[in-house]
Design a protein around this nucleic acid. Sequence first.
DNA 1: TGACGACGTGTCGATCGTCTACTTATTATG
DNA 2: CATAATAAGTAGACGATCGACACGTCGTCA
Lengths: 116, 116
Amino acid sequence: MIPMREPTYFVLAALLAGPLHGYAIIKRAEEMSGGRVRLATGTLYTALDRLTADGYIRLVSEEMVAGRMRRSYGLTDAGSAALRAEAQRMAEAARLVTGEETVPRPSRLGRKARTA
Amino acid sequence: MIPMREPTYFVLAALLAGPLHGYAIIKRAEEMSGGRVRLATGTLYTALDRLTADGYIRLVSEEMVAGRMRRSYGLTDAGSAALRAEAQRMAEAARLVTGEETVPRPSRLGRKARTA
DNA sequence: TGACGACGTGTCGATCGTCTACTTATTATG
DNA sequence: CATAATAAGTAGACGATCGACACGTCGTCA
């Protein structure tokens, strides 16, 4: 599944912090992208079906709210791996043009030995 | 023209160092991507027409070689700008997932390289 | 000599994700 | 009372890509 289109990428990215339902994914993607990425509903719901069929996300809950189903989806391990692989690919492609290097941001938790 | 698909991005990226003809673009894109990106001829030649119509590249030379046209294309200013904007977009999207930061690589040659 | 791979440009039909537009329905705001 | 926001979903069209095909040259290897 390489490469991924932007809407698909943001659907997965929106789920990084935990499961969300459809409409919340649209809002989260918009927020993450600084307002730039606005998932159309037609894109979102077909993407949810496709990503579920591909095993990248899975339905984690179905609750009835105001007489309507609210379905929440979460990343699977495969989806998380695919998302990270895609981020890696984009970073490398971008580097070809920007001439910049990426350095790991120092995390104060679980600091590892710096591999210079 | 946001976002760009990967083949389109690599057609433009291949021209960063100067004009190339069709087949050379395919080889350069493959080389730049470490062998991963292999532009199909159907993709390449339709992309060249489209990018020319959009003003991102332009025909810079037509020579007869072995009874056949060899057309070389070069980036326009608009194409160069679009390519950099796209690289920027990808770097930002990647950063959302990888949790890394990009730092400018110190260039000891010309600062603020002028768009060829 | 004949086969084969690399070079080189180009077309065609199918595929697939996305987009626009539409539908349905509840709740909150003016 | 109308409008916006929340919420889920479908249908048809569009556009970039892909694989296959077409056509021809050049150099190499058996």
